[in-house]
């Protein structure tokens, strides 16, 4: 078996606050192969964004990586120095953020922001850097890229800004792109376009993609595999079709049931009872048990997540073929 491009092992990212240590990411492990698209799904506060930022060492204080390893092409990024990380950021692992209104610096022109990204890693002239930036803009479907280079972020719509951010991410043809809910802030139609384009671009260049989102519908259209996070842990993971068609963890099932669908017109939308638990005060064992209809005494111990294939952390999983019939 070949080495995965990215292997996250038992990653723990903690935030020291006055009220105590918040374990935003608490023992997350997953693999990502070259060219693969993995969807990382969870609610707000489940630790999915922090997981993405931890990979590149971009967690702001008071957050810090408390344990685990992030093996990228065999190299541990957790113990790598800042200088080594900087050489990888943007060149081999690029990142796209959630809110395109916020990811481009409002006082710098698009040209400045793209050219500096080229020059950060390649010793080329300004003209060459500019040419590459222009081509990258053209590649993500921005019309008349030559003129648009001189523009400032506020002159672009949200969708266009996200395209610019994607163009910046693609500048160095990275091996991996960490996308942190990049379509959440966009219109549905723009979202669909961008999803399609990112998918195509990644397929063409063989770039692997970690797509962080709360939207299972997006993941099902895009990803090869999915990992569902709850309260800092992965509760279910597997090939996308398996998880969507036969979710085993009650939380995954709850998420899927709360997605509106045409097929269930007139039936009240199901929601997961209760609220996301406070990360400061997680229940012992399975964090989902207070909201779970199947919880019992066994749930006081956290089940382990098996290694391969379709796996789930639950003592009382749903049956493989039962979706939609009962519960």
């Amino acid at each position: 078996m070949t080495q995965p491009l990215l292997r996250v092992e038992n990653l723990q990212t903690h935030f020291a606050t006055r009220a105590g240590t918040v374990k935003a990411v608490d023992g997350v492990s997953f693999d990502l192969r070259r060219g693969e698209i993995l969807g990382l799904v969870g609610e707000s506060g489940s630790g999915k964004s922090v997981t993405g930022q931890s990979i590149l060492g971009l967690v702001d204080p008071p957050g810090r990586i408390a344990g685990g390893r992030v093996l990228f092409d065999g190299e541990d990024l957790v113990t790598a120095g800042e200088k080594r990380l900087r050489a990888i950021r943007g060149r081999r692992i690029a990142m796209i953020f959630q809110d395109p209104m916020m990811t481009l610096n409002p006082v710098l022109s698009v040209e400045t922001q793209m050219v500096e990204a080229v020059l950060a890693h390649d010793k080329v002239g300004r003209a060459e850097a500019r040419r590459r930036s222009r081509d990258a803009l053209g590649r993500v479907g921005i019309a008349s890229p030559e003129e648009r280079l001189a523009a400032y972020p506020h002159q672009f719509s949200g969708g266009m800004r996200q395209r610019v951010a994607i163009a910046i991410a693609l500048l160095h043809s990275p091996d991996l792109i960490l996308a942190d809910e990049p379509t959440t802030a966009l219109d549905v139609t723009i979202q669909a376009q961008i999803l399609f384009e990112v998918q195509t671009l990644c397929r063409d260049t063989g770039t692997a993609l970690l797509w962080v989102t709360h939207d299972l519908a997006v993941v099902s259209a895009l990803a090869d595999r999915v990992a569902v996070m709850y309260a800092g842990r992965i509760v279910e993971t597997g090939p996308i079709a398996d998880v969507i068609q036969a979710p085993r963890h009650p939380y995954t099932r709850g998420l899927l049931d709360s997605v509106p669908s045409r097929n269930r017109r007139g039936v009240p939308l199901r929601s997961i009872p209760g609220m996301t638990p406070s990360v400061l005060d997680l229940p012992k064992g399975c964090a989902f048990q207070p909201r779970c209809g199947r919880a019992d005494a066994a749930c006081a111990v956290m089940p382990e997540l098996p290694e391969n294939g379709h796996a789930w952390r639950c003592w009382h999983p749903h049956d493989a073929d039962a979706r939609g019939a009962a519960a």
Binding site: Q53, L56, L58, D60, R86, A87, I88, R89, G90, R91, A94, M95, F97, Q98, D99, M102, T103, L104, N105, P106, V107, L108, Q113, E116, A117, A120, H121, A165, I168
Partner: peptide, 24 residues
């Protein structure tokens, strides 16, 4: 976010602070 994005591009701290933060 744009400061984090600037760091994610692999820019040096001097560039992030001296251009992205300072100008704002």
């Amino acid at each position: 976010d744009y400061v984090k994005f600037a760091r994610a591009k692999g820019l040096s701290p001097a560039r992030v602070v001296g251009v992205h933060i300072l100008k704002n």
